[in-house]
Design a protein around this nucleic acid. Structure first.
Lengths: 203, 203
DNA sequence: GTCTATAGCGCGATAGAC
DNA sequence: GTCTATCGCGCTATAGAC
């Protein structure tokens, strides 16, 4: 059996609080979340929350840093990998993101919404060490001789991957929720890289 | 001169409150917004807010309904227009959305984030009278004989249009904000319909 | 480390004068 | 209709016993 189990019962108290906080913050956002909700979710007393983390604010910063890392940690290593082609990068990014987002569908809307509330605060958490401009990804794009700005490709890639999760509530009401969402996402794993290759070929 | 001026000074008090509430809610979200902020922004007293609208909650519902209409009102009339081709629909939707989002960049993240907090509550506000399945848009797609589910096209369209606005804080930190964002969006008005036509041709 | 009890205060809402 | 003043709740945070 694996050492790390999902619904582990004997986590340290600190870990239990972080798990609970992550869940409650991600679902409700900072402003709507109550420390009492988090304490109850963690199965501990409210006072303990302030014992381990100094305040709701501090706890939030810890969680937020983790969530940002979860959302963007995927991207930069792949973009800067010299051993893969552009096409392989498209596939890797698409598959990694869709798998991750299937498990954490509320993650993007949470992070993006909280970032908007205070854009300066977490800016340094996102910045890759190397700017995108100097990435292997951009170099490879330029070798293709495309006139289209590399940014468009990144926007299209992330937009086509992430938007279906962010826009799920709307898209579902428009169709009456009669869609098989997981199956559609599985299809997109193959389709998105194909579409990006087409954009690349044409450009 | 136009009768309706942007920074009109002599709006009715009710309108001033709605303007202010729209601004504050959209910027901060429901949970982080304070009724005192809204009153100050409107240049009126806090008590008046409860005089015109019964509560923060009620005021929010009014604003939310308007914002949802703003975000999705564009879509369905175009999708159900029998007088335009698919290609023309791509162009119309792209241009209308980018123009609107340039003026209201915080709109999508606000609506999507609040919808996630309470998906049931505003579901009826979004539902088009006719389901997407029965729309002219889907009929036209089916006539093309594509095997790809119509939903993918809608996701790609909305994703490529809306994501750059939603993800602006991230995308900017990745590049160091050295991009000319408005110019990129202007380019996308032409590029997105082209990309969608390619997807259509290949499918 | 973990609990109970409570301090302290910001918030939404209202009473009541004008 | 619009204001000032204030209520009272619910929240975060802390004191203090165990």
């Amino acid at each position: 059996m694996a050492k790390v189990v999902k619904a582990e019962m004997d986590l340290s108290t600190e870990e239990k609080i972080k798990e609970a906080a992550s869940k409650v913050f991600t679902k409700k956002g900072y402003g709507n979340a109550r420390t009492r909700d988090i304490a109850e979710e963690a199965g501990i007393n409210l006072a303990l929350l302030n014992y381990y983390f100094r305040s709701k604010e501090k706890l939030f910063e810890v969680i937020m840093a983790e969530r940002i890392q979860k959302l963007f940690g995927i991207l930069t290593p792949i973009l800067n990998d010299s051993d893969t082609t552009l096409q392989e990068k498209f596939v890797k990014i698409t598959e990694s993101y869709i798998d991750m987002l299937n498990e954490h569908p509320d993650l993007p809307i949470f992070v993006l919404s909280e970032l908007r509330n205070d854009p300066e605060r977490f800016a340094d958490r996102i910045q890759a060490k190397t700017h995108l401009t100097k990435s292997v990804f951009v170099k490879q794009l330029q070798e293709k001789g495309t006139e289209i700005h590399p940014f468009h490709f990144l926007m299209n890639l992330l937009g086509m991957i992430i938007f279906p999760f962010v826009g799920k509530p709307i898209l579902q009401t428009v169709t009456g929720g009669e869609e098989n969402y997981p199956a559609l996402m599985e299809q997109r794993k193959k389709l998105i890289p194909e579409w990006l290759n087409m954009m690349l070929a044409k450009a």
